[in-house]
Nucleic acid binder design. Sequence first.
DNA 1: GAGTTAGTGAACGGTATCGTTCACGAACAT
DNA 2: ATGTTCGTGAACGATACCGTTCACTAACTC
Lengths: 213, 213
Amino acid sequence: MKRPVNLKRAGGRPSDAAKAVAILDAAWSLFLDRGIAATSIELIARRAGVSKVTLYRHYADRAALFEAAVLREMERIEAAQVIGAPMQDADLAGALRAFGIGIMSFLASKPAVDFYAVVAGELRRHPDLASSFYRLGPGRTHANLIALLERAQDSGQLVAIDPATAAEELFGLWQGFSNFRFALGVEIDAFHADLVDRVDRGVALFLRVYAKG
Amino acid sequence: MKRPVNLKRAGGRPSDAAKAVAILDAAWSLFLDRGIAATSIELIARRAGVSKVTLYRHYADRAALFEAAVLREMERIEAAQVIGAPMQDADLAGALRAFGIGIMSFLASKPAVDFYAVVAGELRRHPDLASSFYRLGPGRTHANLIALLERAQDSGQLVAIDPATAAEELFGLWQGFSNFRFALGVEIDAFHADLVDRVDRGVALFLRVYAKG
DNA sequence: GAGTTAGTGAACGGTATCGTTCACGAACAT
DNA sequence: ATGTTCGTGAACGATACCGTTCACTAACTC
């Protein structure tokens, strides 16, 4: 029991929160540059402008620091996400369009692409992080899209189909082969340029098949 | 100039090719277990049952060994792939169905999922390998599917559309959210169970919109 | 002021890795 | 038999990293 945390924490020099975030910033940028396994604690401390002792005071060890960095990035991404917000879907096509633009812009954004590049190789060895990632990412998107489609069915705008299947199809129409582009970091500018048209084409095709009346 | 390769290679003990493949086998299995950066040369040599000197005689350094392992795995995968083979497409639906089943079975197969898990994090730092991967993988699939659709257009089975766009849409219908499942290694059994139905649904939806007549 | 905690820079012991070298035996061609 | 190459096991020097300790200063509470 080295540090009796939360025990008689009365006086003493206050912990510098800015250093904690500097450490996470440094760690994340190094993860991007050279990968997780190839990034040493010493290098992180140096780039953060912090002594190694300070780093170890904030994060118990390599693994704890890694998890903290990944979780912070997840939260950032989650906070920046506006997809699936409860929207007025009087106009179903408009709602789908907005949803598609939101999710595809997000997937093609630098934070998302970077995040994926960092954690992709590591997730298989961190099942807890992998499931968190799945829930916050594709799982949530899928659920939100299902909910949207169900509301449209309830209001008689869509024919009766399995919403989960339909949601996969619609998302697939938007995504196409682009998941490979995101993973490899290629042709992303071109994707952005075509994004809105791509989403509109997907919505149009989807509604031509599933719209009622 | 340590080893004047291909110079007066007359006598001498023959190089043991089996050891070279044993090294690649060991390297790949270790890459899968612990990741590329966390796998040491010494460990690879030990698992391959080979001395470190022998390893260095076959592969100049870490990077060369890594590239050799990845390239061999690419070739294996390419050899096992039968997608896009010239097929009789009197029956367009049947041709699309066969194509879809082929490509989606492949993407969900263990070698493909494993390959992706190993190289995903590393490709961003190996642009040459990344472009090779893109060409052999999604690029080739896309091109083959485009060719198939163009033939269908020429024979009057499809309405006039941009084949590249249509190919993306069709592939997207097949894939849906499954790229995330593959990358995370989750729900792959369930995907296999539903694979044929999924492909058929995609083909049906696609043809309902684009089939002529 | 006293007491307590945060932070620094430097150094520690221990371990691991890289790529190489050495002496030696094994397998081939001539 | 001779020469040449392949392979082994062991050790090498160099470097890097981990997580900790030390002596010291800085910042805060009481």
